[in-house]
Design a protein around this nucleic acid. Structure first.
Lengths: 327, 327
DNA sequence: TAGCCCTATAGGCGTTCACTATGCATCGAA
DNA sequence: TTCGATGCATAGTGAACGCCTATAGGGCTA
């Protein structure tokens, strides 16, 4: 492999001759023969149709044209050096960018992951875009986004075409979430489907996947939920629930992460849903993208270990999960 | 001769591929085969140890590294283009510089020449340095100055060594100069050497060549000049003479160019002295230097014509003989 | 003027570049 | 799924270029 930067030989030689003010010494420094320099520089002069060096005197010196040419040549060389450094930075993950697509709910779940990523690679600018799952898949396939985080592992038809690949990060229980002032607060026993039907709920709009999960659950168990309120904003739901009058169904992690909200298991439980990482299959992955994938895996395994540890003492909170990953 | 700019093939190829988003089309545009591009770009990628192009999809696209590399590469290429333009400007004499050395008296004589040069080539910055003749010769030989204008054609020993060459621009009569209020003002008849001895004079200091001419003249004719004042400033002499009490000996051109001063011939006359252009022999001459030499010749021949036309008495002038320096 | 230092030129050799032919993967259509 | 079309990668050969040694020529110094 060349350690040398890609740059015209003739100009490099000219630089050396100008520096040493001598063909012979420059040839020594460059570890080439002196005639080689004469030849190369002559060619450069011919291609520019101008005399760059004045060889008449005792020592070689630059002509006016040589002076001005070298000024620019040095800058050009500097640019290519800068290019190499920039690339190196990119490889080092000390710079770069990551375009991340996620469904509207997953951002609550992966905010700690994003935070950890930024803490590790502060030079990489992350831009997150909320979009439906289908857009995520298309965006990844067409390289409009580098990586996506979606709410389900049931990929659309496009996924089959092996253009994208999906990795399950973790899966998540869907529980009833109530505020501390709610009548069910403090219930230890699981919530039955029948009881759920009587409970006034605040739910996401029907176009959200999570809502569709809930609807499917109710249909399967022959109940009609009492929907007191619908919204397309997760934060509205969280605040309403926190006030204590209405309940909702939320991923366990979101519910327990919020102050003043507690999570109550359902029986029978809703099917777990998965948080999935989506990226291109086979194509080029930027270093930042690779790093994000690796960090995500590490973060999830750490998260799993913490969760197992916490379950043994079932009453309380989970520790904040900032998985640290070494490069 | 190459019309193409000197720049690495591999980078040029990369630019083309990035532009056309296709190896095949880029190869067409570059008039090379497609495998050549594959090969060259692969080598570039290997030398940078990074993937620059993502060939996985339908169309070739740049990776992050390729994007950032191309940004710098374009700038580098732009610099080399700028270099070529700058050199072209230099050849065009729309830019450049000229270092001119002259003895303290010749500046009076060549000021119109300098003015004409600047009028023709306003982009060339001229720096004039006053220095003794010896320094001019050394300066030209050692390339500290591009061209010198001296007061005499008797070159020092250094001139013999063929490192410098001298061209006579014109020669100049040395006459008595008096103010209009001077007792001799209006004299038509030549001034004899004997009369000169009685005349109170203001002269240059003995270290000036002009002064040495005068001293030699006096010695040759056995007279002792009445030196009322000595100075090393030509402008002081001019002003003193203008006041009318003292006379001096000046090149005819200087005397007649000054308002309130008239020139009176001497009989026998002082030997004419020559205004000489000095430049390097054999070595590189900058375009600006060559242009100055050519303009000097033109200017002198024009000057000669004007002078011949002005002076009806044909005894006076001789033609300017200046061999022109070939490139 | 003789000798030394430095650059230019000549001719042979090896690497690199570019070409043709072919292989392999992807994409679109039957 | 299969087939043809498209597009990049690979192999192998010929030409061009870069680099070498040897030598010539020119300027500077003793």
């Amino acid at each position: 492999m060349h350690r040398k930067i890609v740059f015209p030989r003739s100009i490099r030689y000219l630089l050396a001759v100008a520096e040493h003010k001598s063909f012979t010494r420059a040839a020594d420094a460059l570890a080439v023969s002196q005639p080689t320099l004469s030849q190369q520089i002559k060619q450069l002069e011919e291609s520019l149709d101008v005399q760059l060096l004045d060889r008449s005197g005792r020592s070689v010196r630059l002509t006016d044209a040589g002076e001005v040419y070298l000024l620019h040549a040095r800058r050009a060389l500097g640019e290519l050096h800068a290019a190499q450094r920039a690339i190196h930075d990119l490889q080092d993950l000390s710079r770069g960018s990551l375009r991340l697509g996620m469904t509207p709910i997953t951002d609550y779940l992966t905010a700690p992951l994003l935070d950890a990523f930024n803490a590790h690679y502060p030079g990489i600018s992350v831009s997150t875009l909320e979009m439906p799952q289908h857009d995520i898949e298309c965006g990844v396939a067409e390289d409009r986004i580098d990586v996506g985080i979606a709410f389900t592992n049931t990929l659309s038809s496009m996924a089959a075409s092996s253009k994208i690949e999906a990795h399950v990060l973790f899966d998540e229980a869907l529980n009833l979430a109530v505020g501390q002032g709610h009548g069910r607060a403090g219930d230890r026993s699981p919530f039955s489907a029948a009881t759920l039907a009587e409970e006034p709920l605040v739910l996401l709009s029907p176009d959200f996947v999570l809502r569709r999960y809930v609807d499917m659950y109710c249909r399967q168990h022959g109940i009609t939920p009492h929907i007191a309120m619908e919204t397309n904003s997760l934060s509205v739901i969280v605040e309403i629930v926190r006030l204590g009058r209405l309940a909702t169904i939320l991923p366990d992690t979101i519910a327990t992460a919020q102050h003043g909200i507690q999570s109550i298991k359902l029986a029978p439980s809703l099917p777990n849903h998965t948080i999935t990482l989506i990226c291109r299959n086979g194509g080029y992955k930027s270093p930042a993208c690779v790093a994000f994938g690796e960090l995500a895996v590490d973060w999830c395994s750490l998260r799993a270990r913490q969760q197992t540890a916490a379950v043994s003492t079932p009453s309380q909170r989970r520790t904040p999960e900032t998985a640290l990953v070494q490069r």
